[in-house]
Amino acid sequence: MGIVSRGFRGRRREQDDRLPPGQYLVDDFPVLSAGPTPRVPLDRWEFAIDTEAEVTHRWSWPELMALAQTTPTVDLHCVTKWSKLDTSWQGVSLDTLFEDVETAAEYALVYSYGGYTTNLPLEDLLDGKAWIVHRYDGEELEPRHGGPARLLVPHLYLWKSAKWVRGIRLLDEDWPGFWETAGYHNYGDPWREQRYQGD
């Protein structure tokens, strides 16, 4: 064992502890796509939260940039089994965006430019668990990774972190999204390996 330092083994063990069941580590950033990459000019970009009472809160790009910015560093877990540790982002916490939103809804349907949707309980978007991010690794977020802005909700499989995010519709009833209506798990917890319906 002489050539393997304790430090190296320690790092491996720490990485293994952060790897959910069935996942493997990658160093690159794979791109998976269900359609053509939308190109959204910033002067036409907007983000909206639509409540169950049909009240809409909107933010333009300059308005999003003017909000308090945070820099989460998180681990990503894709349902296709790759995981990427310590990814660095910049964006706005959804707690900030929800500050003035009055709602009693339990469910959220996230929708994107290009037509993609994904659903999750509203509580999974709050309390420091989710962000609208627009910079990755110190650079503007590339369109292939969801730029100008994507949802980041890293405690769930990455298909929940909708690229090209356009808005969140708050609902009294759960409304399954794009992959959730095509066999994928409704919730998608990587630590419980909730990949497909029935898992």
């Binding site: 998976l32 269900a34 359609g35 053509p36 349902v79 296709t80 037509g115 298909w159 992959w179 095509a182 066999g183 994928y184 497909y196």
Partner: peptide
């Protein structure tokens, strides 16, 4: 991956999905 998404060459809407 995560599944096949087949889109119309005319309008780009989804015609078929297979997981």
């Amino acid at each position: 991956a995560p599944g096949f998404v087949a889109r119309c060459p005319g309008c780009d809407e989804v015609v078929l999905r297979l997981v």
